[in-house]
Design a protein around this nucleic acid. Structure first.
Lengths: 98, 98
DNA sequence: CCAACAGGTTGGCATTGCAAACTAGTAGGT
DNA sequence: ACCTACTAGTTTGCAATGCCAACCTGTTGG
């Protein structure tokens, strides 16, 4: 197996999936965000967004905190250190592969 | 929806899938290949490889020709012009997004 | 009381990937 | 000639995942 191609085979699928790649890209840039902002920026429906966030959380890539903005519930998301590192590595691998 | 993120949402899923991304990358580089070479370079099993090649063929990205090497059957693959173009565009979009 | 909002859960359908079975033709041994 | 094994793929069964649409929960405002 060719070196370049091996990099592709080893890409982190949790991040590679476009839905989550959007989320990681956004969260990497902004350093903290809420559910509605992510929904608006990605164009995903709530169900899909919710399940991608759950997956990122169980991968340890994001931290989810449920709070209130006044009386309205608000879900806050931010990358963990592991998530930041995984995203940087993903980008590095992809760049090397292409 | 943010411009960078929109690029990700619009990535060509036919190419983005790692199995097929490996194939496109290989075929883009070598300009003509056979089934066994691709299997060896990608590490995929025959079934998976066969189905990805079918999908790439029906997307019009590769051309499949079945011939013989002496008496042994051989399946030859190569990118079409459309496939080459799609791959270049995919890479461009990805680069812009990251 | 009722519509609307934030967010989550569920059901249905398509796709991926593996493994195992299958096809078709070829080569080797007896 | 006959049986077996191998090569090159294709097809099928199965589990996991992705995405959408629809429904559910809890709360707020009119």
């Amino acid at each position: 197996m060719n070196r370049q191609v091996r990099k592709i085979a080893e890409l982190d699928r949790t991040i590679h999936e476009p839905g989550r790649l959007m989320l990681m890209t956004l969260l990497f840039a902004v350093e903290g965000s809420d559910f509605l902002y992510l929904q608006h920026e990605t164009g995903m429906n709530k169900g899909t967004l919710s399940s991608h966030l759950s997956r990122l959380e169980s991968a340890g890539y994001i931290e989810v905190s449920k709070t209130y903005r006044g009386k309205v519930p608000q879900t806050l998301l931010r990358l963990t250190a592991a998530g930041r590192k995984a995203f940087e590595q993903y980008r590095r691998h992809l760049r090397e592969a292409l």
